[in-house]
Design a protein around this nucleic acid. Sequence first.
DNA 1: TCCTCCTTGAAGATCAAGTTAAACCCCCAA
DNA 2: TTGGGGGTTTAACTTGATCTTCAAGGAGGA
Lengths: 304, 304
Amino acid sequence: MLNVKRLELLLDVVELGSITAAAEKHIYSPSGVSQQLRRLEAEVGQPLLQRQARGMVPTDAGHVLTAHTRRILRQMAAAEADLAEIAGLNRGSLTMGTFPTLGGSFLPLVISRFKKQYPAIELHVRSSRFDDLIEMLENGQVGMSLLWDYEWNRLNPENFALTTVFEDATALIVGKDHRLARRKQVDMGDLAKEEWIVREEEHPVVEVLHRSAQAAGFSPRIAFHANDYQEAQAMVSVGLGIALAPRTAVVNKHPGVSIVSLGASAPSRRILLAHRHDRVRAPAEVAFQSTLLDVARDNSADFR
Amino acid sequence: MLNVKRLELLLDVVELGSITAAAEKHIYSPSGVSQQLRRLEAEVGQPLLQRQARGMVPTDAGHVLTAHTRRILRQMAAAEADLAEIAGLNRGSLTMGTFPTLGGSFLPLVISRFKKQYPAIELHVRSSRFDDLIEMLENGQVGMSLLWDYEWNRLNPENFALTTVFEDATALIVGKDHRLARRKQVDMGDLAKEEWIVREEEHPVVEVLHRSAQAAGFSPRIAFHANDYQEAQAMVSVGLGIALAPRTAVVNKHPGVSIVSLGASAPSRRILLAHRHDRVRAPAEVAFQSTLLDVARDNSADFR
DNA sequence: TCCTCCTTGAAGATCAAGTTAAACCCCCAA
DNA sequence: TTGGGGGTTTAACTTGATCTTCAAGGAGGA
C-alpha cells in the first residue's frame, strides 16, 4: 500500500515546484525528501517527476497520483474534523440505565438539562430492575447506570466505578387526617401501634421497615401489600394504614396523604451512578455524568 | 495526521470482530495490533473500541472513523489502480468506447485529428452496444465512452460524469421519388398515411417512431424490419416505405434516398462523453476529450 | 475447577525514516 | 575555461516507531 506521508511530500513538491521548498515546509532536509520520492517511485514502478534544470515537473503518473493524493488528504482531514466534533460533543450518543422511582422523578430533570446543553447528542435511557441493570452494565448494553444501595448491602466498588449522586431519605406516608399528618418530623418509636402498608415481600423498602421497627423496639403489623407506590399512597389516603417510601418515590404526592420526615430514625438509600472500571468512557458519557451531578446538587433540597 | 496503517487495523478489527482475527489477517501478533490500536486511540484522544467479553464493539468515534477509513482505503486503491493502468500502457495511451453509428461517422474525424495532434499517444477504440459500454466504463476496460440518451430515459449524472457533445436530430429517410423528397422539412403530422421501415423491435429508434407518431396523432404501419441503417435505406430507396434515423446514422447517404429534416416534431438524441466520477483522468484522456469537443463544434452543421 | 480463547503489558530486535556531509549537475557570468 | 549558485542525489550513520517474544490476566464453557 502507498505511504501517505510520501504522497504528501510528492504533492508538495509538485505544488511548490521543488524538493527544497517542500523540504522547508516539512522541516526536513532536501536529502530526506529526495530519498522518500525515490522510494515512492520505486513503489509505483514508474517515474513521477521529471527532473528538470529548474525544479521538477510531474509526469502523467505524477499528475494522476497528486490528484488522488489531494482526495486522500481531504478525506483524512474530514475524518479528523468528525472526530473533533465528537470530542467537542457536537455529536455522539450514549445509553444509560435507571430504575423506576428515579426514572419518574430525578432523571427527567437531568435529561431535560442535558438535552438543552448538548442537543446534538443522542440519548437512550433504559429503565429496569436492579438485577437487570447490573447485567446490562456488565454486557455493555448500557454504558452507565443509576443504582441504589442501603448501608447493609453496599455495592462493591471493585465491581463498578461508583459515584454517589445523593442520599435518598426514607419518608413516612400518612393519611391527610392522620394524627401525625401535621408533624414536620416523627420518630419510628412513635409508630409502634400503627398498621402498615408495604410493597411486595422481597421489595427493599420492606426490609427498611423491619430493620427500623426492630431498632425502635417493635414489630410492625402489615395491613396491605401494594404493587407500587401509587397504590400504596392510595391505600394510605383511605386510612388503611401508613407506609414508608424513599423520598424520591413520592415527589408526586397523592392529594390524600402527607409526607413526614423520619429524620435519622429510618435508614436512607444511596443513589449511585455506576460504570464498568475497564470501560474508557466517551466524551458524551463524561458530560452526562457531570450534568447529572450538577442537577443532584441543585435539587438536593427536594429529596430530603 | 492519522496513520493509515493503524486505521486499516482498526477497520479490520471492527469488521472481523476481534484483535486476534485482524492480527492473523495482517500476519501480526495480537499484541502488536493491540498496541497500535491503543496508540490510535491516544492520537484521536478518545476511545474507539469498547472491550467486551465477546470481542470488540466500536464507539461512536470508532464508527465514524471506520467509515472514513473505508473511503480512504478505496481512494488509495483507486490511485494504485490508475498508476497500474498508466504503467501498463506505456505512458500516454487511452482506451475509449463508442457505438456503431458514431463509430461510422463522427468518431473517425476525431481520431484523425487526435492522431495528428498527439502522435505519441496510443489510442484504442472499442465499439459496442449501450449496455456493454456502461459495463466497460464501470470495470475500467474503457476510460471514457461516447453514449447517447433520449429525453425520456436520461442518463443519471450521479453514475458518470457526463459532457454533452452535440444533439443528434432524428431525420426522415424517403425515396428519391417520394412526394416529400424535395422538401427541406416536414412535420410528423404529414406522415400518418405512410408505410414505415424500422430497425428490430427493441431498437431505440423504434420507440422514437412510436412516440413521435403518437404525438402527431397516428399509429404507424410497419412494412419491414431492417437489421441496420444501410439495409433500411436500401428498402426505402426501392419504395417499400420511409424510415426514421438519427442524423449521424445517414451521413453516408444511400444514392436512392433523400434525407428530410423533421424539425422539432421528432425527438433528438443527446450524444454524451462519459467517464467515472472517481477516476482521476490521465492527461491523454483530457486531451482527447478536448479534441473531441473541438471536432463536434467544427462539424456541428453536418449533423443537423 | 480447569481449559481455552482473547487481550494486554514489558522488554528487546529490527528496519524505515530521518540526519549530516559531500558530491554532482546544469546554467550562467566573468 | 573557470567559478559560483541553485538544486538534487548518494553514502553512512542515528534514532525511534513498529514489530516480536514472553508472560500475565480475565471471561466463558466443559
